[in-house]
C-alpha cells in the first residue's frame, strides 16, 4: 500500500517557535507507527504535517515515495481520526461516512456499498440513521473510525483517538484498532501521550521530546534499552527508578556493582527489584536499603513507594505484601537489569 518517509522535517511557527526540530522517520508499508511524548513535544504537529493540515517549514514528507509537501490534505489520500471525533453534527452516521466519498465524485451505489460494508465491519449497521448526538462516546469513536476506513486511504492518521473514552472502553478500542489495522494492512501513524497505548499498538515506536525524536524502535527494545533518562521515565508504568550517582557513589547503597563509564544516573525498573536481605537473594547487583513510605496493593501486584539512595523509588512485588509503611527494606536489582545514564541523560 504505502510507506511514509519523513526527512529532517521541521516546523517553525510564525512567531518563531520551533515545534518540530528536524525529525526523520521511515515508516514501512503496513506498519503502525506510534508517536508518543508529553504534551507540547511536537507529535501532533508532526501528524498534522503528514496530513497536510500544517505546512512543512523544512525537510520533506513523502507518501508512497512521492514528496507531498505541496499537496493538500484531500489529494494526499489519507484519512484522519480526530481526538474529538469531529463528526458532522447535522449529518446522520451514514452521511458522515459517505461525505468524503461523495466529495470525490464516487457513484451513489458504490458509496452505498462501501458504507454498508464498513458499517458491518464496525458493527454500526443499526446506527446508520442516527445523528452523532444520539450516540455514546464509544459509538462516536467507531463512526470516526468508519469514516476513515470507508475511504480506503493509503495512510491512516490517528490523533489521540482514545483519550475521550473511559478506561475500559479505551482498552477495548485499543485491541480493536490494532486488529483492524492488521486486517486492513493500512500504514498508520498514531499519536498518543499514553505510554500503554504506545507500547501495545506500535510496530514502530517513536518517543518524542521537545520537538526531537528521543528514541525510535520496536516497543520492547525501547523498553529494555531506553536511550535516555527521558525515555526511561516515560515508557513503563510506573516509570523506571532513577537515582543520582555522586562521584560514582550512591547514597544508602550497601553494595554497588561496577559502574559503566562515568554515569551520573543509575536506573532500574520497579519490576526488576527483588526484596530480601543478603542471604535471600544473591548475585552481582545493586543492593540498597529503602524506607517504605507508601503501599499500594492492586491485587495481582503491589507497589511499594520508598525513599532510598537520595531519591524516591517504586518497587513492584507480586501479589499481596506484608510490608508496612515505615519498614526498612533491603532492595536488590541484578547487574544486568541496571541502566546507566551519563550527565547529559544519554545511555552509557
Amino acid at each position: 500500500m504505502a510507506t511514509v518517509d519523513l526527512k529532517d522535517v521541521r516546523k517553525v511557527y510564525a512567531g518563531g517557535v520551533e515545534a518540530v526540530k528536524g525529525v526523520s522517520i521511515a515508516i514501512p508499508d503496513k506498519a503502525l507507527c506510534v508517536l508518543v511524548g508529553p504534551s507540547g513535544c511536537g507529535k501532533s504537529t508532526l501528524l498534522r504535517m503528514i496530513a497536510g493540515l500544517e505546512t512543512i517549514s523544512a525537510g520533506t514528507c513523502s507518501i508512497d515515495g512521492k514528496v507531498v509537501n505541496a499537496v493538500g490534505p484531500t489529494e494526499r489520500d489519507i484519512a484522519m481520526v480526530f481526538q474529538n471525533y469531529a463528526l458532522y453534527p447535522h449529518m446522520k452516521v451514514y452521511d458522515n461516512m459517505a461525505y468524503g466519498l461523495r466529495n470525490r465524485g464516487m457513484p451513489k451505489d458504490e458509496v452505498d456499498k462501501r458504507v454498508r460494508t464498513t458499517a458491518k465491519t464496525l458493527e454500526l449497521e443499526h446506527l446508520l440513521e442516527r445523528r452523532p448526538r444520539e450516540l455514546s462516546g464509544g459509538q462516536r469513536q467507531r463512526v470516526a473510525m468508519g469514516r476513515a476506513i470507508v475511504r480506503n486511504p493509503k495512510v491512516f492518521l490517528f490523533d489521540e483517538p482514545l483519550s475521550n473514552l473511559d478506561a475500559k472502553l479505551r482498552g477495548q478500542m485499543r485491541v480493536e484498532i490494532k486488529s483492524l489495522q492488521r486486517q486492513l494492512g493500512v500504514t498508520s501513524v498514531y499519536v498518543t501521550h499514553d505510554q500503554l497505548e504506545a507500547m501495545t499498538l506500535a510496530d514502530v515506536l517513536v518517543v518524542m521530546n521537545g520537538g526531537l525524536v528521543e528514541q525510535l524502535g520496536a516497543p520492547l527494545d525501547i523498553y529494555e534499552k531506553p536511550a535516555s533518562t527521558f525515555v526511561a521515565s516515560f515508557i513503563g508504568a510506573p516509570p523506571m527508578n532513577l537515582l543520582p550517582l555522586r562521584g560514582g557513589q550512591l547514597v544508602d547503597a550497601v553494595t554497588l556493582p561496577e559502574i559503566a563509564g562515568n554515569a551520573a544516573t543509575i536506573g532500574f525498573r520497579p519490576e526488576d527489584c527483588e526484596v530480601g536481605a543478603d542471604g535471600a537473594v544473591s548475585g552481582d547487583g545493586l543492593r540498597l536499603m529503602a524506607r517504605v513510605e507508601g503501599v499500594e496493593p492492586v491485587g495481582a501486584e503491589s507497589f511499594l513507594y520508598c525513599a532510598a539512595g537520595g531519591g524516591k523509588i517504586v518497587v513492584r512485588v507480586a501479589g499481596r505484601t506484608e510490608v508496612l509503611v515505615g519498614d526498612q527494606l533491603p532492595i536488590f536489582a541484578r547487574r544486568e537489569k541496571l541502566h546507566f545514564f551519563g550527565s547529559d541523560g544519554k545511555r552509557v
Binding site: 474529538n84 471525533y85 469531529a86 458532522y88 468524503g100 466529495n103
Partner: peptide, 26 residues
C-alpha cells in the same frame, strides 16, 4: 471546532462545499 474544519478538508470538501454542506446547516 477546528477539528471539524480539518475533518472536512481531509474529506475533500473545498471552501465552498464546507460552507454549503457544513456551515450553512449548522
Amino acid at each position: 471546532p477546528g477539528e471539524l474544519v480539518e475533518a472536512a478538508r481531509v474529506d475533500g470538501a473545498g471552501p465552498w462545499r464546507f460552507f454549503k454542506d457544513i456551515l450553512l446547516p449548522l
